[in-house]
């Protein structure tokens, strides 16, 4: 009985987790309509990744692979030609940031002024863990330690009564 219940709980938890993870998965860009020829699948994947992480400067909440705006088309074109020229991902991203600013980065860089942005979630998780540990510890000790001699005697009596009954 306890086992089935535990199994059900576990299944419920895992399916909710899967659902949340599915929501977090990026949806493939649908708007980019150009047909691109790539010499190898690695470059093609890099093109997909780059156009999915560069943000369209005109449209606020779309990556350039998801936007019909002319500037997004121009940016895809530049990403493509620069990949053909053998430029690295970093060079291509730097090229875009030089012109359009940090705004085009969906993944902000780790630097002085983004420390809070990157650090805060980690700090909060650590703080949460600390609080939980402290609470658990306090509870564990509290039950045994805080009994007076009188209470202990009563507790022993109760336990003994149960055993003999």
């Amino acid at each position: 009985m306890a086992l089935t219940r535990r199994l059900m709980l576990w299944l419920g938890f895992m399916s909710s987790l899967a659902f949340v993870l599915a929501l977090l998965l990026p949806t493939p860009g649908l708007a980019a309509s150009e047909v691109r020829e790539f010499s190898d699948p690695v470059t093609e994947q890099r093109y997909r990744d780059l156009t999915a992480t560069l943000r369209c400067p005109k449209c606020e909440n779309q990556a350039i692979d998801d936007s019909e705006s002319p500037i997004a088309g121009d940016m895809r074109e530049r990403v493509y030609t620069q990949l053909q020229d053998g430029r690295s991902d970093k060079e291509i991203i730097d090229f875009m940031v030089e012109r359009f600013g940090d705004y085009v980065l969906y993944n902000p860089r780790l630097e002085g002024r983004t420390l809070l942005l990157w650090g805060l979630p980690v700090a909060l998780v650590l703080l949460g863990l600390l609080v939980v540990t402290l609470i658990v510890r306090a509870r564990r000790h509290a039950s045994a330690r805080d009994l007076s001699a009188e209470e202990r005697a009563r507790l022993d009596a109760l336990i003994n009564r149960e055993r003999t009954e």
């Binding site: 369209c56 400067p57 005109k58 705006s69 500037i71 012109r99 359009f100």
Partner: peptide, 12 residues
């Protein structure tokens, strides 16, 4: 072609 515009970061 919008090349100078691109180097200027013009998006509209």
């Amino acid at each position: 072609e919008g090349t100078l515009g691109f180097d200027l970061g013009v998006y509209g």
